[in-house]
Each structure stands twice: as structure tokens, then as C-alpha cells.
Amino acid sequence: MLYSEKVLEHFANPKNVGELEDANGVGEVGNAKCGDIMRMYLSIDGDVIKDVKFKTFGCGAAIATSSIATEMIIGKTVEDALKLTNRAVVEALDGLPPSKIHCSVLAEQAIKAALSDYYKRQGIDPAPIVGGAGGCDDCGECDVCNAH
């Protein structure tokens, strides 16, 4: 298992760990069976993501993808955050081992789940905007899920 320096750096010094008391969008994806759970807290003001925090149970890659994903959406508009893809997360980390790509999928899904929650709290149906939030079962990367 060879991690890039960037992954190790984010794992050793993860950014934005914790919870947000005034979060108005919270999303959790993954499950313990797969070995990864990510929870994202968003504080959205108007159209801009003012602050992001995360809590992750998972491997080094799961923690690193969570960390860099929070950095990539802080200060961005909701619209821009919705455009964040797992591929962009992988690129920002200078790559991930093939068996860890699913961690980047989880990071994308965690943000989308938190944005869905934000829309729901506003009384807006998130489905047309966010799309299928996706869960762990949809990632298809993990042997446990594939066995379902």
C-alpha cells in the first residue's frame, strides 16, 4: 500500500476535524461493515459554505480524503460544492491506491448528503438539485458491499 506524500500529510495533520454546533447541513455516509464512515458538517450562509468540519472512522485514505474535501469546499458556493467530484479529490491528493478510490467516492457523497440535508431543512426537495445522494451500497468498490 503506497500512499502519496499528500495523503500522508493530510492523514498526519487533518484539516477541519470536529463538529459544527451551528451546522445547517449534516450528512453521513458509509457503514461500519465497509470499514468507513464519514460525517460532514456544513455551515452555509446565503449561498456560501462558511465552514466545514468532519468526523471519519476509516483508514488513512478515508481520513485524508475527508480532510482535503473540506478544504476544497470551504468558501465555495453551494453550486460549486455540488460540482466536486471524487476524481477531483483523488487528483488533489496526487492519487490514491486502486483499492482506496472508494474513499474519494465517500467524500463526494458525504458532501452531497450534507447538502441534501441543508435543502431539506430549507423545505426544498434536494433530489432534483443534488441527485441521488448515494450511499455506501452504491459505491461498488468494497467487497463487503459487493457481497450484498
Binding site: 487533518p14 476535524v17 470536529g18 463538529e19 453521513e28 461500519a32 464512515i37 464519514m38 460525517r39 468532519f54 468526523k55 471519519t56 472512522f57 481520513i63
Partner: peptide, 8 residues
């Protein structure tokens, strides 16, 4: 544990 959503 401080970063784990399962711990709290």
C-alpha cells in the same frame, strides 16, 4: 477516537 463519528 476524537475524529471518529462512532466514538461520540
Amino acid at each position: 477516537r476524537a475524529m471518529s463519528p462512532l466514538w461520540d
